[in-house]
Amino acid sequence: MSPDSCPLVKNILLLDSEGKRVAVKYYSDDWPTNAAKLSFEKYVFSKTSKTNARTEAEITLLDSNIIVYKFAQDLHFFVTGGENENELILASVLQGFFDAVALLLRSNVEKMEALENLDLIFLCLDEMVDQGVVLETDPNVIAGKVAMQSTEASGSLSEQTLTQALATAREHLARSLLT
């Protein structure tokens, strides 16, 4: 990456508690084959799984890549960027992803729920980053974009409108402020 270029995300990973893929998205050519991707995921998982990234996002530098990550129940969220990337930009992408998923899964952030709503997760990734360029980091906007289109469809937000989803989010926020 040349120092004056646009901030780029190299990949976003959502893995389970054994390091297996739930949903992943690669935006750079650093890992050309599926095998390379899998071994990267395995490596990252093994280097991070013992850390406590549940309250605050954690960060590490592996093979000249900055990786920010956060865990919730049996889900592990990762965002990878180049060595010279601004860590806080990557962290804001991670936080956006994490919170948007929490909104879309109605705070039930766990593997089964994620798999059952995998379409929402895929849409969420699609609305956040386009070929490495950050599209949106505000979780409410991301979830809004995803949910708006799912209301008519079979999606699991069928019984729950966006307003409700946002209400849940506010409630969630209030709870986290109180504790």
């Binding site: 605050e56 996002a57 960060i59 920010v68 860590e87 806080l88 962290a91």
Partner: peptide
Amino acid sequence: PRPVLRFA
């Protein structure tokens, strides 16, 4: 308190 900030 944020590790990402400390790291950066």
